[in-house]
Every structure is written in structure tokens, then in C-alpha cells.
């Protein structure tokens, strides 16, 4: 009996020690609203709280510069005055956006503001299908050639306005990544409303696992990516849309036609070291469709990887993600 009691004490001690071993206090997580979405930053390490709050401040700062809707943002002013000397952040986002436009044959275009307005995708406006005339008018100002940059002064043509919605979160996540690193955080997971960015790997050294949302049911996952120190961004028509006369119109507008992109894809997830590129590309690949995306990938496979979910619910992944992607569903490698 005495032996049995000793044994029980031993087991209890072992359990206590092993629970104590998982130091739950070493993680800090913050959830907040910015850029019209919910953001979460989860960081590990000694300086985690300071790092996260510095990152959060940085996001607010960027939101105040880049928002299309905030009336004192640089972009809002630029859109109104058509010429403005802008901050280095704004300038850099615009320059990167132009680069991505030329890389993707203008399937990504930040001059889509007039179109977004015509379709009513801004708060305070009502979603509606614009008339052909409205679209023609809006299309006049669309195209990156309408943006002129001279040192830090950006000049827009008369009919042109900018919407950085498709890259702002990507740029912000890149900045959060930099701020966290500068503050000594080597392990963190950033989620800016679906833009996911991993800083390093998990504290135990394993990869982060990032689920890709099932376009048909946002509570389910279509697959999982194992990643470390990488950005993952998904664009899909299911994320914002409205219905009119039984027809669904989503928020990713093809600047070629002026209508919501109809390329046979439900969502595109881009994996890249470059946050801004990942964000812009996810939109661009969604607009250009699987076939063109394949071609783009063939020339730029070192820049990014992608997961495509098509309208007929097939999943395609680029071959550099073979070891990162897993799914319960069928998928094919391109």
C-alpha cells in the first residue's frame, strides 16, 4: 500500500511538472480593428507586448495614410486634388503597385477606384449594377499610365483616382513583420483580415499551419499550408459581393471590362516572402484566371507559389508548394 501511495505521488509530481513546463505566459495576442477588418497579432518572446503594440501603431499610421475612405488620408487628398507630395510609405505602395501591374499585364490595377465607386463598393454607397455608360465613363481614368510620379509628388490624370485596397494590407503586414523583427520577436503569426504572415516558425521550431478558407463555407477549410517566415494571402469573389436579380456580383473588378472578374476561379491563395507582392498577386491571378496564372508562374516560380480553387471546385497548386500543402480534397499540381 505504501508503495502504491508513493507511486501516486510520483505520478502527480510528474504531471504537475509537465504542465508547468508549458509556460502559457510566453505568448501575447492582440485583436483589433483597422483597414475595415479584424486583425490579430500573436507573438512569442521576451519583448512581445511592446513589439505588438508598436506594430499596432504602425498599422493605424498606415491606415490613416492609405485609406480611400478616411477624409484626411493622403490617398483621399490625392484623389481630390490629383496632385500631392506624399509620404515615403504612400509613395512606396504606389510604386510597388505599378511594378505589380506591369508584372501581371495590368490584371492588377490601383486605378480601379472609379469602377469600385460605380459598383457601390464603398461605405455610404449602395451596391448596384452600373449602366454601360457609367462603366465607360469610369474606364476613362483606369490604367497605370494615368499615374505620374516625380520624386515624391504623385500626379493623377483628371478622371483617375486610386484605391490601394488590394495592396494596403499586404504592405501593412510587411511593415508589421519588420517592426516585430526590429523589436526582437522571432516567432509570431499575423493575420490582417485574412492576410496571414508568419514570422519565423512556431516557438517549438515547427511550421505554422495556415488553413485556406473553403469558398463555399467559411467555417470549413479547403486545405492547409505549412509555412514559416512567409506571407499567405487569399483573394476570392466570395469575400464581398451583392446580389441583384438573382445574379451575384463580387468586389474584384476586372479593369479590362469594368465588370467583376469572371475567370473561372473561386479563390486564389498566394504564398510569397514579399507581403505586398502576395497581396497584389492574389488579386491579379484571380482576375487573369488559371491558364494565364500558369504562364506567369512558369516565369516567376521563385517569387511565389499559389493555390487555386476553381468554379467547379477543383484545387490546383503550383509545384513549389507540394511539400507545404495538404488537403482532404483532391488536388492537382501544375
Amino acid at each position: 500500500m505504501k508503495l502504491l501511495r508513493l507511486f501516486c505521488i510520483f505520478i502527480a509530481a510528474v504531471t504537475a511538472i509537465s504542465f508547468g513546463g508549458c509556460d502559457i505566459g510566453s505568448v501575447y495576442s492582440s485583436e483589433f480593428f483597422a483597414m475595415d477588418t479584424v486583425m490579430t497579432i500573436t507573438a512569442y518572446g521576451d519583448n512581445r507586448e511592446n513589439a505588438v503594440s508598436a506594430a499596432q501603431d504602425r498599422i493605424y499610421e498606415l491606415d490613416d495614410l492609405l485609406s480611400v475612405q478616411k477624409e484626411d488620408s493622403e490617398i483621399y487628398k490625392l484623389n481630390r486634388e490629383k496632385s500631392l507630395s506624399v509620404s515615403p510609405d504612400t509613395l512606396s505602395v504606389i510604386k510597388r503597385s505599378k511594378e505589380i501591374s506591369s508584372l501581371t499585364d495590368n490584371c492588377f490595377d490601383i486605378t480601379c477606384e472609379p469602377l469600385m465607386r460605380a459598383w457601390g463598393f464603398y461605405s455610404g454607397l449602395k451596391n448596384k449594377v452600373p449602366s454601360q455608360d457609367e462603366i465607360e465613363t469610369a474606364l476613362k481614368g483606369v490604367g497605370t499610365e494615368h499615374i505620374k510620379i516625380d520624386k515624391n509628388t504623385v500626379t493623377l490624370d483628371k478622371n483617375t483616382s486610386l484605391d490601394l485596397g488590394a495592396v494596403a494590407k499586404g504592405y501593412a503586414s510587411g511593415e508589421v513583420y519588420r517592426v516585430l523583427k526590429e523589436n526582437g520577436v522571432s516567432s509570431a503569426l499575423i493575420s490582417l483580415g485574412g492576410n496571414v504572415r508568419a514570422v519565423g516558425s512556431k516557438p517549438d521550431g515547427s511550421d505554422w499551419s495556415v488553413a485556406i478558407c473553403d469558398p463555399d463555407d467559411s467555417t470549413k477549410q479547403a486545405g492547409t499550408l505549412k509555412i514559416s517566415d512567409t506571407a499567405v494571402v487569399t483573394s476570392g469573389g466570395y469575400q464581398r459581393y451583392f446580389e441583384e436579380n438573382g445574379q451575384i456580383y463580387h468586389h474584384i473588378i476586372d479593369t479590362e471590362t469594368g465588370y467583376p472578374a469572371n475567370s473561372g476561379l473561386k479563390s486564389v491563395t498566394v504564398v510569397s516572402q514579399d507581403d505586398t507582392l502576395a497581396d497584389g498577386l492574389s488579386t491579379a491571378l484571380f482576375v487573369m484566371g488559371l491558364q494565364n496564372a500558369k504562364k506567369l508562374y512558369a516565369d516567376n516560380s521563385s517569387l511565389f507559389g499559389a493555390v487555386f480553387i476553381t468554379d467547379d471546385n477543383k484545387i490546383y497548386i503550383t509545384d513549389n508548394l507540394i511539400n507545404n500543402f495538404s488537403s482532404e480534397r483532391s488536388f492537382e499540381i501544375i
Partner: peptide
């Protein structure tokens, strides 16, 4: 194949 494990974050929600 083994089934997919649970995730740390979700992209595209």
C-alpha cells in the same frame, strides 16, 4: 493520406 491537421490561422475568411 493522413487527414489534414488543425490550423493556426485561416486565410481568406
Amino acid at each position: 493520406e493522413d487527414n489534414a491537421p488543425s490550423a493556426d490561422a485561416m486565410t481568406g475568411r
